[in-house]
Design a protein around this nucleic acid. Sequence first.
DNA 1: TTCTTAATGCAACGTCTTTGCGTTAGCATG
DNA 2: CATGCTAACGCAAAGACGTTGCATTAAGAA
Lengths: 191, 191
Amino acid sequence: MSPAPGPRPGGRSARIQQAVHASTRKLLDERDRADITVPMIAADAGVTPSTIYRRWGDITELFADVALERLHPDAPPRETGSVRGDLVAWAQDYLEEMSSPVGRAALRDVVMSADTLRSEDGTNQFKCATFCRTQIETILGRGEPVQGVVEHVIDHVVAPIIYRILFDLDPLEPDRVEELVDHALDAAVRV
Amino acid sequence: MSPAPGPRPGGRSARIQQAVHASTRKLLDERDRADITVPMIAADAGVTPSTIYRRWGDITELFADVALERLHPDAPPRETGSVRGDLVAWAQDYLEEMSSPVGRAALRDVVMSADTLRSEDGTNQFKCATFCRTQIETILGRGEPVQGVVEHVIDHVVAPIIYRILFDLDPLEPDRVEELVDHALDAAVRV
DNA sequence: TTCTTAATGCAACGTCTTTGCGTTAGCATG
DNA sequence: CATGCTAACGCAAAGACGTTGCATTAAGAA
């Protein structure tokens, strides 16, 4: 038997990762991304730069890692009584979170991370999209199953929200979210 | 009178910019982004690194600059006889271009460029979105004007295409483009 | 306690980035 | 054609960052 490889939870490895993440978040709040360097983070976290380089490769991957943590939903979507209501509520929350400077920056950090370096569960970008999809599936699972609704919600609700944020257009009016959700549901039924 | 500031077309400034752009494109075709450095580009273009640093700030901005050039449409959208047909044709072309490794990389380079450094006509991201919008407006201008169609096309056709590319999801089937266009047009009429 | 292994710290080296200063190219004027 | 002006470039030095081999340490297992 091989002696159980992999990082042990609670060990030094985990403590360091936590410290580095914390320092990264802290610096991201204070300074501009372009002004943050690996040695800075290392100093703040109390580790050597080489440790960070070895674990994350480069600062882009570290940022993406921290961003993913931010983008990961910490609770299942709220329940309002109807699928439509749940979707609207979730999408409005999502829009608000992602529109904030922090959310926007996190989105970019994920998008700009390597797409060649894929872990066992996909690229960072894919993981990010999966967070969304999972939340949507949870909501839709509460109602009657309709083929392909998830994809429609992604295409007609999530995509417009994100596109406008990333490409610096006027952010979506929160009111329009309702319209988008109706559209996505209509689209699913009609096809 | 101030002696007419700004770069003179055809001068040394323009030649250097052209050479640097060319070298950047060339290197982007050969190597991976992460392996390309400013000194490399400078050597290939026959200039000093400091010139590039002074003009573009960092390699990210240079990449974004080159990417914008790639994303800029070089011709007005094809005409097929109907607005719907034009939109479908344009969207399919757009999907194909952006899905290619080159297109995808260009999109990312634009998205990851600074959003604080805005030129007189907006950020790089905004310019990129404007290219799309202009093409769409051209097409819509050929038919009867309907309030807000442009935004619907952006939200329901462009956004899904781009979102899926950036977030590493399965790219849209070219067939589904037609469906998206119809939805966008329906949406515009119905509201 | 002792052993094993993965991961860290240290330190040195090479490369990139930044910056001051002298020079040049392009354009305008007489 | 000669002269002057200005923005931009090349050069070179200094500083900061990225990378790597080697010794050491921390955490868990026997």
